[in-house]
């Protein structure tokens, strides 16, 4: 469970302190300039804190399902709620879960795409020096292979896949959340699985 609301009780566990390295620079700057008493005085708007407590698991699990990395999931969680706090995009108050879920999927896909670009850039360097035998596909196990493949699907298809396989929703529940029909969901899942199968097979063939 999430710790109590008092900021003093929200110190990260010792074993996770090194993870602050993965925080965006502007967050680190903000933290370094905030005094302890600032932190005691600062409170999120009540409704945003409520929104966070109600939906952080869904956002984190979504991001983790797509990125396959806890540090990326944490960044996504932070990004989604920072944007909400700064009102960079208006929250759909009638369907906040749907809004946050969509935001989490998009932020997570952007994270994986950015990571892939780094890998490809690195591999381009290696290709130039080592010749065409080096594969540009990341070799990071099934999780990362799946993350890479998910970025090749449309965001809407990823939303549906993650709701089904990460959150365990039924077709009917997905249809309700995304405000569409069960038929649309069933077709999307069928097509996504077929596409993923192809993408994963290509990935394995490149590896072998």
């Amino acid at each position: 469970m999430l710790p109590p609301t008092d900021a003093a009780d929200l110190q990260p566990p010792e074993d996770s302190v090194n993870k602050t390295r993965s925080f965006p620079v502007y967050i680190l700057n903000a933290m370094s300039t905030a005094t302890v008493s600032d932190l005691h005085n600062r409170r999120l708007p009540e409704e945003l804190e409520e929104l966070f407590r109600e939906h952080y698991r869904m956002v984190y699990r979504t991001a983790y399902g797509i990125t396959g990395r806890p540090e990326d999931a944490e960044d996504v969680l932070q990004t989604v709620f920072l944007r909400a706090m700064r009102r960079e995009s208006a929250i759909d108050l009638e369907n906040p879960a749907g809004y946050l879920y969509r935001a989490a999927v998009n932020a997570a896909l952007n994270t994986v795409q950015a990571r892939n670009r780094h890998v490809l850039t690195d591999d381009t360097g290696r290709l130039e020096s080592a010749g065409p035998a080096v594969s540009p596909v990341p070799q990071e196990g099934m999780r990362q292979r799946l993350s890479h493949a998910l970025t090749k699907l449309k965001p809407r298809a990823v939303e549906i896949l993650i709701l089904r396989y990460e959150h365990g929703y039924t077709d009917a529940e997905i249809a309700k959340l995304l405000r569409t029909s069960r038929g649309v969901i069933a077709v999307s899942l069928y097509r996504s699985r077929a596409r993923l199968k192809k993408l994963l097979r290509t990935s394995w063939e490149k590896e072998s």
């Binding site: 929200l10 110190q11 933290m31 966070f52 806890p70 969680l77």
Partner: peptide, 18 residues
Amino acid sequence: MDAAAARVLQCLRSESPI
């Protein structure tokens, strides 16, 4: 996940206007 949520909540508060 819960440890990450605690860290993020702390960051959100530090980013929030007083």
